[in-house]
């Protein structure tokens, strides 16, 4: 499929790499390495920036070490694979080569959560946030739409630090209208205000949270926070926001262990908060059913109906 094909929709992946391509055209030190993971937008790199594009083959460990060597030589390196292969497969290389040395390499994982819903647990990105959260020096971005993904190429290009970007193949409809609406220093956006309850969501689950909010209005005013910079989290900025409500829900397409749920629960316990907290995410088991992403959400009680009833029961407690 090419860009001129009518079926082609510019999701997060293509928005990010198109933006990166524009940057790379101006700076020959920007290098994109893929572990044989494709994307339509890579065609531009192959065609116009051949010397800045490397397919290392199905060899993620080498990809990370190689990126480290290039970064030590002043290159700004982006490495790319499906989320579990970009993070878990070469975890120890990321730990030592990128994080211990604090190098300018951006790990780009495609397939957040159940994005690859038909391919099974091998391809599910369900513990990538947890793994990357563990590592000192690592930043984590989890964009919620294509506009944000587009901007992340520029953000990481300027940062000079290791970071992980968790991409979804989707990214439309857009959540944000203008780039000015997204503040990467802050790391989160309040999309719907509330005095009762906030859903803190990340990635494409932000869209689900907005749907729930819309569905329950005007009976309940459900607030929605899009948390797109998971590490470092602006605790001092988010705490005053959530401290104004009685109920907080986290919503993530990730294992409950080690993800957003853990991050937010720590904020609450550190402050001896009386906020009623309900984490929604993937329980501690591998998903052994196949089907659409919506189907996997339903059987994991993460679809909008389940989230709406969770909101109701949380408010009753």
């Amino acid at each position: 499929m090419s860009k001129t094909d009518k079926r082609w929709v510019k999701g997060m992946r293509d928005s990010f790499f198109d933006s990166l391509f524009k940057i790379a055209r101006k700076d020959k030190n920007v290098i994109l390495i893929t572990a044989d993971t494709g994307a339509i937008c890579h065609d531009d790199f192959k065609k116009y920036l051949k010397s800045q594009y490397i397919n290392v083959g199905i060899a993620e460990q080498n990809m990370v070490g190689l990126a480290a060597g290039l970064a030590l030589s002043g290159k700004k390196v982006y490495i790319y694979a499906i989320a579990p292969f970009a993070t878990a497969r070469c975890f120890e290389q990321i730990r030592v080569d990128l994080c211990c040395m604090d190098l300018n390499v951006t790990v780009v994982g495609i397939g957040a959560g159940y994005d690859y819903s038909t391919l099974g647990p091998t391809h599910h990105g369900t513990e990538d946030i947890a793994l990357m959260r563990l590592l000192p020096n690592m930043k984590i971005y989890s964009p919620s739409d294509s506009l944000m993904a587009d901007m992340l190429a520029e953000v990481t290009y300027k940062e000079n630090k290791p970071s992980y970007i968790r991409l979804d193949r989707t990214g439309l409809p857009l959540i944000y209208k203008r780039k000015n609406d997204i503040d990467f220093d802050c790391g989160f956006s309040i999309l719907k205000k509330s005095t009762d309850i906030y859903i803190i969501a990340t990635g494409r689950m932000v869209l689900a949270a907005l749907e729930v909010s819309k569905k329950m209005y005007p009976d309940v005013k459900v607030g929605v926070i899009d948390l797109f910079k998971i590490k470092p989290l602006s605790v001092n900025k988010i705490w005053p926001v959530i401290n104004k409500v009685r109920n907080v829900i986290t919503l993530e397409e990730h294992f409950l262990n080690g993800g957003l749920a853990d991050e937010v629960s720590r904020i609450l316990t550190d402050r001896k908060s009386k906020i009623i907290f309900k984490p929604i995410g993937i329980k501690d088991c591998f998903c052994r059913r196949y089907g659409s992403r919506q189907y996997l959400h339903r059987i994991n009680n993460m679809d909008t109906d389940s989230v709406a009833s969770a909101v109701k029961s949380t408010l009753r407690t």
């Binding site: 080498n62 990370v64 190689l66 480290a68 060597g69 030590l72 030589s73 290389q93 030592v96």
Partner: peptide
């Protein structure tokens, strides 16, 4: 110190 890393890093330096 963790074994198996150095040759990839060296390859990156050589490629640069």
């Amino acid at each position: 110190g963790s074994l198996g890393h150095g040759l990839s890093i060296a390859a990156g330096l050589a490629l640069a």
